[in-house]
Design a protein around this nucleic acid. Structure first.
Length: 425
DNA sequence: TCTGGGGTCCTAGGACCC
DNA sequence: TCTGGGGTCCTAGGACCC
C-alpha cells in the first residue's frame, strides 16, 4: 500500500488573521507581537521585505510603526484559535483523515487519491480555504510526512509553484531534496545543522545519501526515522487524535516588574487556574504542581533570582481552588523580598485521566462539590468570557497583566475581554 | 524603557532489585 | 591480579517542533 500525505500550512498565519477582518491591511506590511508586545512572532511578506526578522524586539521596529510604514498587533490568541478551527473544518471536507499538527498546520491523508489529479485537487483545497476563511495557505503533497514538509516549503518559496507542489515522481523528489538546505529540513535544528555541515552535509539530498548507521550513531533513532522518511519510506503515521498532554504549563512575563508578594501571588494563582482549566478540557487531573519565579535576565543592573518548587498533592486534581492553594504554598517557599520579579509560571505534571484517580482514605476535600462548582464556572466562562468568574486569590487589580497595546477587536468571538469587578451587594 | 510561550521525544546514568 | 549480570524505573539534560 502506498501512502500519500498532504501538508497544508497557513501563510504568515497570525498576520493573515489580522488582515482578514481589515481589508485596508492587504498589501501592507503587518507584524504580530508576542505576549507583552515583546517581540515579533509573525510577519506578512511585506514586513519580511522590510527586513524585519522573526524575534526582533519591538523597540527595534517601533520607528516603522510610528511612521505608519508598518502595522503592529498584539497577539490575539482567541481570534487565531477560532480562525484555525475554521481552516481545519474546511480541510476536513477534503479527506476524512486529518491531523491538526499545530494552530496553522494540518496533515491530510491523501492515501486513496492516487487516481485523482492531485495537482488540481490541491488547488481546489487552497482555493476553497481562501474563499471560505480568507486565509491563504500552501500545500505540499508527497509519499511521507517529511517529504510533504519539503514540498510545502518549496511550494511557498517558489514563484512557479505559487503555493502548491506535488512530489510523487522520484526525479522531482530528488530535485526538491537538492534544493532544500539541511537547516530547513523538518527535525534538523540549529545543533544538528551545524554538526551536519561540518561533515559536508549541506542539503537534504546529501543527508539521504549518508549511511543509516552513521546517522544512527550521531542522531539517534530520531535521525534514522527522518532519513527513511526523506528516502520515501513512510514511518511517521497520521495522528488523528491528539494524545492527552503529559505536562501542562502556564507562564507569562508580567506587564511590569513586580515587587510585592501579593501581585506575584495573584498572577501565579491565575496561571494555576489556567492550568486547571486546561486539565478539565482534556478530562485529566494532575498530582504534581511546580511553581517558578524569575527576575528579568535582560536587566543587567538588577539582582538576579530564579527558583522553583514542586509539591506533590495528596490526590490528583483539576480544581481551580485546589491548584491555587498548592501553587500558593509553593510560591511562599520560593518567594524572596526585594527582587524585581518579571515572570512566574505553573507547571502541572503526573497527569492521569479524571476517572482513574487514586483516592486517599484520609481525604478531607469534598471533591464532588469542587467538580460541580468548576462545571458551573466553566459554563459561565464559555458564555460570558474568560475571568468573568474567578477565585478571589486571582485578585482584581491585575497590575501584573500583560501589556497588549495593539490588540485588534475579537472579530469572531467576544471572549477575551478583561475582567470586571461586580459588586455583589 | 522595551527581548514569548508551550509542548514532544530520546538517551545516559544512577538507584534499586533479584 | 581478581570482585556477576541483568532488569526496571526515574531523572536530568539535550535535541527538536510550532
Amino acid at each position: 500500500m502506498t501512502t500519500l500525505f498532504g501538508l497544508c500550512d497557513c501563510n504568515n498565519f497570525y498576520a493573515s488573521c489580522e488582515r482578514v477582518f481589515d481589508p485596508t491591511l492587504h498589501g501592507e506590511p503587518v507584524v504580530v507581537l508576542s505576549n507583552n508586545d515583546g517581540c515579533v512572532i509573525a510577519r506578512s511578506n511585506e514586513a519580511k521585505s522590510l527586513g524585519i526578522q522573526m524575534g526582533d524586539p519591538f523597540f527595534k521596529i517601533r520607528n516603522f510603526v510610528e511612521h505608519k510604514q508598518l502595522y503592529a498587533f498584539s497577539s490575539n490568541y482567541v481570534l487565531y484559535g477560532d480562525m484555525s478551527d475554521r481552516v481545519m473544518q474546511t480541510l476536513s471536507l477534503f479527506t476524512p483523515n486529518i491531523e491538526v499538527y499545530s494552530i496553522d498546520e494540518c496533515f491530510l491523508d491523501l492515501g486513496d487519491f492516487y487516481d485523482v489529479d492531485l495537482f488540481k485537487y490541491a488547488w481546489e483545497i487552497k482555493r476553497t480555504v481562501a474563499q471560505w476563511t480568507g486565509i491563504p495557505v500552501s500545500l505540499g503533497v508527497a509519499p511521507t510526512k517529511a517529504l510533504a514538509k519539503v514540498a510545502n516549503k518549496l511550494a511557498k518559496k517558489s514563484a512557479k509553484a505559487n503555493g502548491v507542489l506535488v512530489l510523487t515522481e522520484p526525479y522531482h523528489i530528488e530535485k526538491a531534496l537538492q534544493a532544500t538546505k539541511i537547516e530547513d529540513v523538518w527535525g534538523i535544528g540549529r545543533q544538528y545543522a551545524k554538526f551536519l555541515k561540518n561533515h559536508h552535509i549541506n542539503t537534504a539530498l546529501d543527508f539521504t545519501n549518508a549511511s543509516e548507521s552513521w546517522i544512527r550513531k550521531h542522531m539517534t533513532v530520531v535521525g534514522v526515522r527522518l532519513h527513511k522518511e526523506l528516502r520515501g519510506q513512510s514511518c511517521l503515521e497520521l495522528d488523528e487524535v491528539a494524545p492527552p498532554k503529559k505536562g501542562i504549563c502556564t507562564s507569562r512575563s508580567f506587564g511590569k516588574k513586580l515587587t510585592s508578594f501579593n501581585d506575584v501571588q495573584e498572577a501565579t494563582a491565575s496561571y494555576a487556574a489556567r492550568c486547571a482549566k486546561k486539565l478539565r478540557v482534556q478530562k485529566s487531573c494532575a498530582r504534581l504542581v511546580t511553581v517558578f519565579v524569575q527576575t528579568n535576565p535582560f536587566s543587567e543592573h538588577d539582582k538576579q533570582y530564579y527558583n522553583s518548587k514542586t509539591i506533590c498533592l495528596p490526590v490528583a486534581t483539576n480544581s481551580d481552588m485546589e491548584l491555587i492553594h498548592y501553587a500558593s504554598l509553593a510560591l511562599k517557599e520560593i518567594y524572596r523580598p526585594s527582587y524585581y520579579y518579571k515572570k512566574s509560571g505553573v507547571i502541572v505534571t503526573d497527569i492521569v485521566p479524571e476517572r482513574q484517580i487514586q483516592y486517599d482514605l484520609l481525604d478531607t476535600v469534598d471533591r464532588d462539590k469542587h467538580t460541580k462548582l468548576m462545571k458551573v464556572m466553566d459554563g459561565l466562562t464559555d458564555r460570558f468570557g474568560r475571568s468573568k468568574v474567578q477565585v478571589a486569590a486571582q485578585g482584581l487589580s491585575k497590575s501584573w497583566i500583560l501589556k497588549s497595546d495593539y490588540m485588534s477587536p475579537c472579530y469572531t468571538t467576544r471572549i477575551n475581554e478583561l475582567p470586571v469587578a461586580y459588586n455583589l451587594k
